[in-house]
Design a protein around this nucleic acid. Structure first.
Length: 430
RNA sequence: GGAGAGGUCGCAUAGCGGUCUAGUGCGCUUGCUUGGAAAGCAAGUAAGGUGUAACAGCCUUCGAGGGUUCAAAUCCCUCCCUCUCCGCCA
């Protein structure tokens, strides 16, 4: 949520931000409702004050009726006001490029060479950085994760379709062990960085979900919503970690407050029919290790860079080539002021695909969640900033490993950083 | 799922139609006192909105929402949550 006072004083700026995010909100009407709302409020407050003071019962009764009429008007006005206000997205940060959609995102960094498959040394895969000399042997093409997964009995989407429908998958055998290895690796790295490990609820109330800012502008369609109880399955554990401190005033000395949480994530993937239908790249359910931070406002940009650096560190440990993409305004989403994605090179698809995402949501979520800290300098309670970032999204990271680490003989080399977590296993072979 | 008890200012508690502008204790802050500390004494001690140059003022909030009343922490209704006992269960 954006501060209504800020909108009053910066109308043009807000309208430009809305336009740049590719969203429609009637700011004029919002401001009109704001004015109406305040007028009614003043009127009611005056009458209430009078009503309290008067000793005349007749007058009190008359005031009571007048107040009740105005209150009804006020409640209607506020309903519309709130709806309009919650549709105002977070403002993009100054340094974010104005752009229409993902086609205008900027690639700001590329790390590692696209994996080349040099099989001249009989199935031994060279390190990513060095394996640049040769083209693949003639007639040989890297397989995609589904082909690999089925051949090595690691992934089963056919049976998942039978039990659960489209866009589900069974992970099997070493794929499962790799998932838990990735979880351990992420937790080991991040607990050293003072992140508190969490396993959160994957179901949250409607209020929590709304506060995180993912329901507006079509977001509702992306969620599994159980209307009977007004609860949602989370699409990411961010939606469960953020609301945890709802209506709290955090201790300034505890900031930045960092959590790393492991949870299953649920997405309806409505509107993505026909897109990424192969394998487990885009599924309704996957597990993810997620970072979430609460910071002082002045620290959030630095924290954002820090989250990005941790994501990169994790990818570098896996030795998977990737690029860092900075989202343009049109691809930021509702709550984010700035967002970076990491896209891993996926040889089976011959393209970079998103595996990580990190956003600085500034005070947008904190306002709705009412999470503050005491600013020692001003003596005031101020809203904190919230940030989130992927540590590992399991399915996609496993895809990246299978596709980048495949050998000519059909086996998969285990990334060396994961070996200790897999009892020293070095490869998957059948 | 069944039965019962309860949710009040950071914590603990009182209040059960107007005296609540929510009392008291603890905690905390400041001052006095002290060589310093403790104790003692005194004062203060929420959030939000509106408003203001800034104060002031005014309004709201006793789990949430509705209702009764001139007047609600207090009465009524609905919902949420917590605790105890029973049942079921990984």
């Amino acid at each position: 949520m954006i501060d209504i006072k800020f909108i009053r004083q910066n109308k043009e700026k807000v309208e430009r931000a809305i336009k740049n995010k590719g969203i429609k909100v009637d700011v004029d009407r919002l401001l009109k409702k704001d004015e109406e709302r305040r007028e009614l409020l003043t009127e009611i407050e005056q009458k209430r004050s009078e009503q309290k003071k008067t000793a005349d019962r007749e007058k009190a009764k008359r005031l009571k009726n007048e107040i009740s009429v105005s209150k009804k008007l006020l409640s209607e006005t506020e309903t519309e006001f709130n709806a309009l206000l919650s549709n105002v997205p977070n403002l993009p940060a100054e340094d974010v490029k104005v752009g229409k959609d993902e086609s205008e995102n900027e690639i700001i960094k590329t790390v590692g060479e696209k994996t080349k498959f040099d099989f001249s040394a009989k199935g031994r895969r060279r390190s990513i950085a060095l394996a640049t000399e040769r083209e693949p042997a003639s007639g040989w093409k890297p397989q995609d994760h589904l082909a690999i997964g089925e051949r090595l009995d690691l992934i089963d989407v056919k049976r998942a379709a039978k039990t659960s429908g489209a866009r589900f998958g069974y992970l099997k055998n070493e794929a499962v062990l790799i998932q838990f290895a990735l979880v351990r690796l992420a937790l080991d790295i991040l607990t050293k960085e003072k992140f508190k490990p969490m396993i959160p609820p994957v179901i949250v109330t409607g209020d929590s979900m709304k506060a995180m800012g993912y329901l507006e502008h079509g977001g509702e369609e992306e969620t599994y919503h159980f209307e009977k109880d007004d609860i949602y399955f989370v699409g990411t554990s961010e939606q469960s970690i953020g609301p945890m401190h709802q209506n709290e005033i955090l201790n300034a000395k505890d900031l930045p407050l960092r959590y790393v949480s492991y949870s299953t994530c649920f997405r309806r993937e409505a509107g993505s029919y026909g897109k990424d239908v192969k394998g487990i790249l885009r599924v309704h359910q996957f597990d993810k290790v997620e970072m979430f931070c609460f910071t002082k406002p002045e620290d959030s940009d630095q924290e954002h860079q820090y989250l990005l650096s941790l994501e990169e560190k994790l990818m570098q440990l896996l030795e998977i080539p990737y690029q860092v993409v900075k989202m343009c305004t049109g691809d930021l989403g509702n709550p984010a002021a700035r967002k970076f994605d990491i896209e891993a090179w996926m040889p089976g698809q011959n393209q970079y695909r998103e595996t990580h995402s990190t956003s600085n949501c500034t005070d947008f979520q904190a306002r709705r969640l009412n999470i503050k800290y005491r600013n020692e300098k001003t003596g005031q309670n101020e809203f904190v900033h919230t940030l989130n970032g992927t540590a590992f999204a399991m399915g996609r990271t496993i895809i990246a490993i299978l596709e980048n680490y495949q050998q000519k003989d059909g086996s998969i080399k285990i990334p060396s950083v994961l070996e200790p977590y897999l009892g020293g296993a070095k490869e998957i072979r059948r």
